[in-house]
């Protein structure tokens, strides 16, 4: 890979836990632990995992909306963690964010025109009639009517609001967009429209995406590469094709097999994980997945050392000490799964 657009090294984030009568800091929760990855210009890196795995915090650390505890974040050659005040605000023109909840992410007291215009004003990209014209063309680009600038968010459906959020992000001409579950709150028919829009924008504008998601169906459709997170750590990282065809980590396999398939005839040979993910406030020792792991080779060593994220096959990184380099599969319901998925013929 040539020099990546975004490079994250050793990112960690601790949140303080407060309690007691005086609300003192009593400890901390490590939401993100030693996360490293690169994102090349023009690609879509998906970060997947279940709630509480640290994927949203990771995205917000990149934008410095959450202050990382440790690690380096280099964007386009600039070390983002050294930026302060006005420098930081200027940098934000280049990295934007699209949120999950289309109801919470728009200011209910601002017209959608003002919402989209805000970035133009802040970065002095346009003002007056030029700004209004720009807003109209942005609305048009995301599939909304340009004459809707004077309307308020409550006049729009969830999918339309999500388009407004996308237009707001595009207004400042960013190179990189963190998409934080951008379609998971949307209905199926609207979700497909927004996915298409995101793909079109990436192609037309040469955008780079960090796509945070829990829906693996959408991830498989959109991502070039995928990082799987569990309890604050990246446990597997590879191309989307490889991940869905031959996942190494037991957790990834369980995650893939848990997706309910829209095919009533599909065999139900899924791996059902026992129990809940552990609390990040009190993570297990060693491999964080070991209490729920079903790997046949699991032993006491798994409870002792934190497994490093190693390149098990070219371009395929995984954090499992029981998986020697060179072999990529030991237990593959996912292969069967994939054929099942392909068997679901498109309607009509």
């Amino acid at each position: 890979m040539s020099a990546p657009l975004l490079s994250v090294r050793g990112l960690s984030k601790d949140f303080p836990i407060r309690g007691g009568i005086l609300n003192r800091v009593q400890g901390s929760v490590r939401a993100v632990t030693d996360v490293s990855f690169d994102v090349a210009a023009g690609e879509t890196l998906a970060v997947v995992g279940e709630s509480g795995c640290g994927k949203t915090t990771t995205g917000r650390c990149i934008l410095r909306l959450v202050e990382p505890t440790a690690g380096e974040i280099t964007f386009d050659g600039v070390d983002l963690r050294t930026l302060r005040g006005a420098e930081l605000r200027r940098m934000r023109q280049h990295i934007q964010l699209v949120f999950q909840d289309p109801y919470a992410s728009l200011n209910p007291r601002m017209t959608i025109g003002d919402t989209v215009k805000e970035g133009l004003i802040i970065h002095r990209l346009a003002d007056g009639a030029a700004a209004d014209k720009r807003v109209q063309s942005l609305l048009d680009e995301v599939g909304l009517r340009p004459e809707w600038t004077k309307r308020y968010p409550h006049e729009f459906s969830g999918g339309q609001r999500q388009r407004v959020g996308i237009a707001r992000a595009l207004a400042v001409e960013p190179k990189f967009i963190v998409l934080d579950e951008p379609v998971s709150a949307l209905d199926v028919s609207v979700q497909a429209q927004v996915i298409n829009l995101l793909q079109d924008l990436q192609r037309d504008r040469g955008l780079t995406y960090l796509f945070i998601a829990h829906d693996l169906g959408v991830v498989e459709h959109l991502a070039t590469r995928v990082a799987v997170m569990y309890l604050g750590r990246i446990v597997e990282l590879t191309t989307a094709e490889t991940l869905f065809a031959s996942p190494i980590m037991p957790y990834t396999q369980a995650l893939l097999s848990a997706i309910p398939l829209p095919d009533p005839l599909a065999p139900r040979d899924r791996i059902v994980l026992e129990g809940d993910p552990p609390s990040p406030a009190n993570p297990p020792s060693g491999c964080v997945f070991h209490p729920r792991c079903f790997h046949p080779g699991k032993d006491v060593a798994c409870t002792q050392a934190v497994p490093p994220l190693e390149e098990k096959a070219p371009g395929h990184w995984a954090a499992c000490i029981k998986q020697p380099a060179g072999t990529t599969d030991f237990f593959l319901p996912a292969a069967a799964l994939r054929s099942r998925r392909a068997a679901v013929s498109p309607a009509t």
Binding site: S189, A192, I195, N196, G217, E220, R341, A342, V344, A347
Partner: peptide
């Protein structure tokens, strides 16, 4: 049914 992302439609436009 057609709007659901699925294997085999990677990076293509979804039917909406």
């Amino acid at each position: 049914m057609a709007a659901m992302p699925r294997a085999g439609t990677r990076r293509q436009r979804l039917t909406t």
